[in-house]
Design a protein around this nucleic acid. Sequence first.
RNA 1: GGGUGUUUAGCUCAGUGGGAGAGCGCUUCCUUCACACGGAAGAGGUCACUGGUUCGAAACCAGUAACACCCACCA
Length: 858
Amino acid sequence: MLDKRYDPKKVEEGKYETWKSNGYFTAGDNTKPSFSMVIPPPNVTGKLHLGHVMDTIPDDIIARYKKMKGFDVLWIPGMDHAGIATQAKVEAKLREQGVSRYDLGREGFLKEAWKWKDEYAKTIHAQWAKIGLSVDYTRERFTLDEGLNAAVKHVFVTLYNEGLIYQGERIIHWDPELRTALSNIEVVHKDVPGQFYYFKYDIEGEDDALIVATTRPETMWGDTAVFVNPKDPRYQKYIGKRVKNPCNGEWLPLMGDSYVDMSFGTGAMKCTPAHDPNDFALAKKYGFPLIRVMDETAHLLPIAGEFAGMDRYEAREKLVEKIKAEGHLDHIETFVHSVGFSERSNTVVEPMLSKQWFVKMKPLADKVLEMQQGEGKVEFKPKRFENVLIRWMKNVEDWCISRQLWWGHRIPAYYNKKTGEILVSETEPNMEEYDQDEDVLDTWFSSALWPFATMGWPKSTPDFDRYFPTSTLVTGYDIIFFWVSRMVFQSEHFTGKAPFKKVLIHGLMRDEQGRKMSKSLGNGIDPLDVIDRYGVDALRYFITTSSTPGLDMRYSDEKLQSSANYLNKIWNATRYVESVLGEDFVPGKLEKKDLGTLERYILTRLEKTIKKVTTKMDAYEFGAASTALYDFVYDDFCSYYLEMSKVSLSDPSKEAPVKQTLYFVAKSLILMIFPYCPFIGEELYLSLPGHKDSAMLESYPTYDKNLVFAHDEVAGKTLEAMIKDVRSYKSASKMAPNAPITICISPKAPFKGIEDYLKRFLFAKEVKIEKEAPKGETFLYKSVSMVLSLDQSVEEIRAGLMKEKERLTFELARGEKMLSNPNFVAKAPKEKLDIEKAKFADNQAKLREVLTRLDSLN
RNA sequence: GGGUGUUUAGCUCAGUGGGAGAGCGCUUCCUUCACACGGAAGAGGUCACUGGUUCGAAACCAGUAACACCCACCA
């Protein structure tokens, strides 16, 4: 017997270990159709947060559902080495011990990083177990394992040989704290208040000075020219003269170029080719030298003279002071401008000239765009996110893939020690003759290969043949650019196929006030805390059911509580069923002929629910699926059938079919909730008689039209309505709920034996079934009426009937309006027309009944 | 500058061409043997606004407003 209360902690204990050790998570049954997914690999940077939970719980629900639907489900788990993020964490840890990565050297540092990885992998495993992920551990991978490394090398070398990877000197985003290059999308732009410095540049041979505005005084040593728009009447006359750089007194050419926006600042712009991408482009055009001013830590180089060695901000401040002292500062304006921050270190990135490796994106992106036009396209849910991908692919820039880090896949490029000649190769050359490139690859370079490299690619393996492409990917909209887009183009290029057929995009979890969760706000929520308070099943239920795909959701204690309450409801309903079934119950077949009206009613409702839930599950609409089940559980089962069954069971002749029905319904709903809430689902399933070893071995309930009884459904609904009407009536008339009444049903009861139910639930002294009902408070249903005898005066009865007449008249007017509209009759679908016609006829009959009764009062 | 999303009950959100829904909160009543983490009965809404399409619009289209997000630019 189950306990009186659902205790999540007790229920969760031990189940995961049992599933895992029994091999329920392991794929490989070739007799079944395959269904495959890969986990979005969490970073080995720390504990799981709600973001991972949001990625993986829908995955798990899909995996468990598909398994119960008869698929051979492969769900590959794994983790991401997360290059920059992890290296930053390991460095921070070392720093606490007073050690820098340079003290340890490459080898020593990597040893530390692997230790870190092993430690956090343990934590992540424990958390996967905690939230119940049914992943296939026999196939677990890591983005930095040998197989992935081989795949990465193969991809790099192939793209290089195809001319799609190249080395180039360009302006890139530089993180001066982590001392590495970044790709465009690793830079987060934020609007911040800043200063706009207006400096006076003396003009050669003129008394006049040119005012040039800049936000970056500290780069002025790298200036090679000053530009104005050639159409600018203010400055036209000076073009071709020289102006004096107030930072070091050097003469710079004043040039005209239409790039300059006359309305911005003073309309005069300094050109710093090595520290600004636009200036770099101008420098290329005019053949200016590229003068670097800062080193890799954003400290000034010797070119800055007395300022050399200063940090960029200190230098800015000191330089402005100096220029001001020399009388060349015009004024300073404060304004808000957009500044790029490193996604990982949150320091201001420095646009810097640097030699890096790039992926030539245009040809790869074009192929993706072409693929999305055809049959093999990736289908997004919600659809609109496909446009996010397409727009990005259309405007994509070359991808800077080299990182000046140690933790990652080292670039398979080798330089001949003598000749300097480059060799790009999957196999290592004689290292006495060669030096390997020091850099590693962007972490997303390996993540991009995840769906196929985890299956053994580039080797042709049985797993790859059977499970690739994967069926579905679940991820957040915030990493479409980072991950989804890159998987798509790499997969298209190397396998000729999209890596997954569908992508289910979810939103982000926000805090209860609707704010983004962030470290700086300290409003992050630890999933383990939530699990501790409400249980993991409530968390799983909340996360997948109280949001719409693609939209952000708010964390809500209230909703977690109500999820837990729902599970408690199912728990107690099951408990009731078991108490009814008793020890010696044996599950049997439901025999149509034995089933009473109410059994047929609840089975009909159940089958309709199964149909709806299945449709919604297949469409990955978990909110809608769960609502359908929820309504069934509360309204049809617990509030109605379960209560009615108490009456039925007092009749020994009904006992057997009622028990079979209760068992069948309870088992079905437990199996339907199971993919969402596997812990309580398993506990309840195992507490039922005649169970298998696990709910994981069961099939998902399937719609059975032999258990749909339209007529009995109507009869059951009529009884339900009768009870509700009388209760409402009593409440509205200030009668006690248990006030005794007499009920008369005419001309014919909706089903045999209805008296017992009415007596029990309405406190009726007597229920009469007669051709002609007496005068009294009247309720009308389809082909039957119910009259309460309440010792009412004629006036009261008349008032009740008048109210009903008024209502019916209104209804008839509505129907009349519709049905007499020739356009409606001609254009509305036939079903709708039939419904309205039937309703109209029904209301007419009811009105006649009311009028007859009113007549008889006189 | 370009794009996307949101706007529905006091709050948080579902719904999506055919009579406005849920959870929580609120009112009244109920410890009756599955559950007080409960039950019963209620109150509460010009579905942001303006036009249009349609027999019929909360839903489709166009526009407006507010809020949020993404991308690009910013000397």
